[in-house]
Design a protein around this nucleic acid. Structure first.
Lengths: 214, 214, 214, 214
DNA sequence: AATGAATGAGCCTTCATTCAT
DNA sequence: GATGAATGAAGGCTCATTCAT
């Protein structure tokens, strides 16, 4: 399972093997039963360790959730930055965002599923501010990328700023959620071109007959 | 609060006042604390009734969730059907879908928030099949609407069938979620035209240079 | 057991029978094992009820301790007030204090033992302020009693105010503790006259050769 | 802090520095949180050592408590013996007992507070017999001191034997407890003369009108 | 219909203690 | 001697649900 690699990147070394085992077990439990219904006992059984050890390493159940969540968040960001680094024009930038999104979910369906389910919990928990900060910083970095000269951003029509992220990622996210919950069959990555194309059309389509206000 | 009206439509009459009070209290609790963390005791306190009464009317906690969920689902469907009934062309149909979605969420933010949080729980519970059936039926009805002659559906390019719902509603949904969680300020309805326009552009944009496979 | 009466005075009626049973069981456990080592399970077993019911009636373990403690405190105060109401002179007042103290401990050894052990816990818990207030009020009432005209309080020499309670009750308390822990055999009430006499001598004894400062 | 000296007297030398550090940390924890609520982890943190080390030196938590308790007991006895060695008459002997008690508590408030709280635990633990033996021996030694010829013990009226210790030390103890729990301000030593005088009056006061029985 | 006392399985968490390194 | 990861029994408490009144 590729999740192993993600965890090894965040908790490297032989000493951390147990930490990784615990996280892997927790991930499976959270996805199978849901966040709240998962008990420490379930996780413990799955990775053959003791309750005390689990608490020794992660403090409490919330700590386990947070550790997994930030692993996923980092990994997702890493792929996005990779893709964006290779893009040149605005269009390629948009495609990088869409492609990295669907590719990551396709590569890491377990982490992705967990992330959708855990976001609300983490946002309210003690790490909520940390999460908000990361999101803000990364969004700024993305805006900065598109603001660089020579990226032909002028092809894109003007949209209300707070609407833009939804236009960019909404369709891909919706399809990914549908895939993860089994409502559709094809892997998100299968439609990466369609989705990127649709977004570009949405962003650059002809001006509406009546000007849109706001 | 508009939610009162929605509930009155599903549980009409003076005899059902208590049922409506309970549902209103439950909705508030679920949204404030989450589904699992909400206890029967919290709901009971909020509507000043007894535990026994609560069970008398809704069977159990799951029953409370399901009752609220189907209320929301029905109301959302009602608005969509209203809007669709007034549309004539495919373009107007697409707009009807997008507009009804954002308008409903704007009108019923509490129900919408609840619906996002409860969907997974209901889908797995004993009413899961009922929910799947409703979704299927309504999706078929929508397809049938677009298949009617004279809708000029040929303006829309061909897309993989399982991708279409995501293209239609993904952006609106993403913005609605962002609004409900406070990440953006403007009401979804404010951007109803932008979103409908974006979707239409996405669906009808120029063919890609290289043909998209699948 | 006389403790039954004390509890019935504070939780009267047939409906409260269970409450009284629980408190009786808790008292026995706390005295046998100590406050901390006593588990809810021990109490539960001893009074044949369920954990839930225990929490239903007393909120938590601390609530159980507080309920017992204030029962004891009230009962002790009641006896003191009775005795004091019958006293006329200062000397009789002092005897009333000493006698009520040793008589109550002799009548209610279980409650007394518990009270010695639980005072610190209650004083720090959420009911600490309530306890401090009660103590203050009762001390003021006692001072007021001795300040009434015609009590011949002038027979008593002047002592530093904060020392007085210790002079009055210290010897009796020490003997009571010794009795409750089995270090002495005779019931405190057996020495009620000795103790009252000793205290009166202490308070009124001849002035020291060198004047005491402060 | 003077407690350092007490510990150095019982665990002398540079090799025992760690032992003393641990005991000092434990004392602080026990007094701040109570015996049971104090965890090994708290003590460990406070003296910057490892769990293993703590167990290496004291065996277990109970061992830590006992070590501290007997330190305190010894030190208190040492002072009492010093004072008694300098006394000549029965009156001076009584004063020596009272003075040594209040002076020690005033010098070592932390150890005294701990001693009050830990006595019950030690008495029940495996060192309970040892404690009972020490108490008995010291009580006999004290009686022997007063039985020495030329001490004019005949000034003291006859009291029931088991009442005597309470008469001697009760008032001082009560004041010391009040001071340690913050209910009074002045240091016990401040009232050493008052307390000794009161005890002497109590012991030697005029015979009661009606003879006291028993 | 309405009430709320009673139930008890099960959860999260703590913590004294052990032991391999 | 020193370290701290690992253990697991046990505790306080919650909460959905039932049922006699």
């Amino acid at each position: 399972m590729a999740t192993t690699d993600v965890l090894e990147r965040h908790y490297p070394g032989r000493r951390a093997q147990l930490k990784r085992d615990i996280l892997l077990a927790a991930l499976a439990c959270f996805n199978e039963h849901g966040l709240e219904p998962t008990t420490i006992e379930m996780v413990r059984l799955r990775c053959n360790t003791s309750v005390g050890n689990l608490y020794h390493h992660f403090g409490n159940k919330e700590g386990l959730v947070a550790a997994l969540f930030f692993c996923a968040l980092e990994d997702q960001a890493r792929l996005r930055e990779d893709y964006l680094a290779r893009a040149k024009t605005a269009r390629e930038g948009v495609a990088a965002l869409v492609h990295s999104y669907v590719d990551w979910v396709t590569q890491e369906p377990e982490l992705a599923r967990f992330q959708y389910g855990a976001r609300a919990a983490v946002a309210q928990g003690p790490q909520g501010d940390e999460l908000a900060r990361l999101n803000r910083e990364r969004y700024q970095a993305m805006l900065a990328w598109f603001a660089e000269p020579g990226r032909q951003i002028d092809e894109v029509r003007h949209w209300p700023a707070e609407l833009v992220p939804s236009l960019l990622i909404g369709q891909a996210e919706n399809y990914c959620r549908a895939w993860l919950s089994g409502r559709v069959q094809a892997e998100p990555a299968r439609y990466r071109e369609h989705l990127a194309h649709a977004v570009w059309s949405a962003l650059t389509g002809p001006a509406p007959a009546r000007r849109l206000k706001a």
